[in-house]
Simulated scan of single mutants.
Amino acid sequence: MKIVIATVSAALCFAAAPLHAQEVAPAETAAPAEPAAASAPAAEAAVPEPVAETPVARALPASTQVSITSDGEITSKKVEVGDKFQFTVVNDVQEAGEVAIPRGSKVEATVTWKTGKAVGGKSGKFELSFDKINVRGADYKMRGTHRQEGKGNTVAAVFATWLVSGRSAVMLPGQMVTVFTDQPIPY
């Protein structure tokens, strides 16, 4: 009887072994399913995601005309070469119906040349070079020059050249000057 039990036990062990192998086989077949699952995100990745719209960058072109005026009086009596002065944009500069440079934007100018009034009826003169404009917190290059001359006194100078001198050059707030942008200005 011990032999029968041992034979039955062995038979059960051998019978269980194939069952165990069958149980393992489905796990092995499940492993190939993982690459199929992994390929599913790849298929999803092939579908393009919606892209957030970026605003189209527009820019005011270089060489655009801008009207400005001085923030204060500038006179050849008091200026020196290298002095800097502030100007203000008089009107909105528009491009395609939108304001590219708002009124009130600041422009910086530098005195590049100066003469004082002189004997013989010669007037004082100075010249400004416009360097940059500040638009919405960013500086952009400008170009343009302006020469301001005082009025000479030529009639009196004909009679007494050593006694008469011309007048100083004076630029007052409200006097309009035209300058140009030197680079595109985004808006």
Results as ranks from 00 to 15, higher is better:
A40G: 06
T29H: 09
P186M: 02
F14G: 10
E149T: 12
T69K: 04
D131E: 13
E49Y: 08
A42T: 12
E28Y: 15
K132Y: 05
S76K: 06
Q65W: 04
A57S: 11
A160Y: 11
V47N: 10
P102N: 07
T112D: 01
L12V: 07
T115Q: 11
P18C: 07
V179C: 02
H20G: 12
A59S: 11
R147E: 14
A15H: 03
G144W: 07
T178P: 07
Q183G: 04
E98Q: 10
L172V: 13
D92G: 05
I74N: 00
V119K: 15
P55K: 06
P48E: 11
T7M: 11
A52T: 15
R147V: 15
K132S: 08
T178D: 14
P48T: 06
A31E: 10
E53L: 07
I74G: 01
Q148Y: 05
Q22C: 07
P48H: 07
K117M: 00
V158E: 13
A100H: 04
S70C: 04
A33G: 10
A21S: 04
R143Y: 12
G150K: 02
V170I: 06
L12N: 07
Q86V: 09
T54V: 14
D71A: 10
Q175T: 13
K151I: 05
A59I: 01
G121D: 03
E44K: 08
N134K: 15
T154M: 12
G97M: 04
A46R: 07
F130Q: 00
T161Q: 12
V158N: 09
V8Y: 06
T112I: 15
A52S: 12
V179S: 00
V66K: 05
D182Q: 06
S70D: 03
R136A: 05
S105C: 08
F126G: 00
H20Y: 11
Q22N: 14
F14H: 02
E28T: 15
A169W: 00
D139I: 04
Q148F: 07
A59W: 05
A17W: 12
R143A: 06
P26I: 14
H20C: 14
D83E: 03
V66C: 04
S76Q: 04
P186L: 02
D71N: 11
R167N: 09
V155I: 10
F14A: 12
L60V: 02
G72S: 13
A157R: 00
V81M: 01
V4G: 08
G144E: 08
F126V: 01
I101H: 03
A15M: 06
E73M: 15
V170N: 01
T178I: 14
F180Q: 09
K77Q: 10
Q148L: 09
E80L: 06
M171L: 15
H20I: 14
R147Y: 03
A33Q: 15
F87K: 02
A42R: 13
A96C: 05
S129K: 02
V99I: 10
N153M: 06
S9P: 02
W162A: 13
A15K: 03
G152D: 04
P55L: 03
S168N: 11
A169Q: 00
A96V: 06
A109T: 01
T69Y: 03
A157S: 10
P18N: 07
T145S: 10
A6H: 05
A38I: 09
V47Y: 09
S105W: 08
F87Q: 02
P35R: 14
A11R: 08
V135K: 05
A40C: 09
A43F: 08
V51C: 03
T181Q: 03
P41T: 15
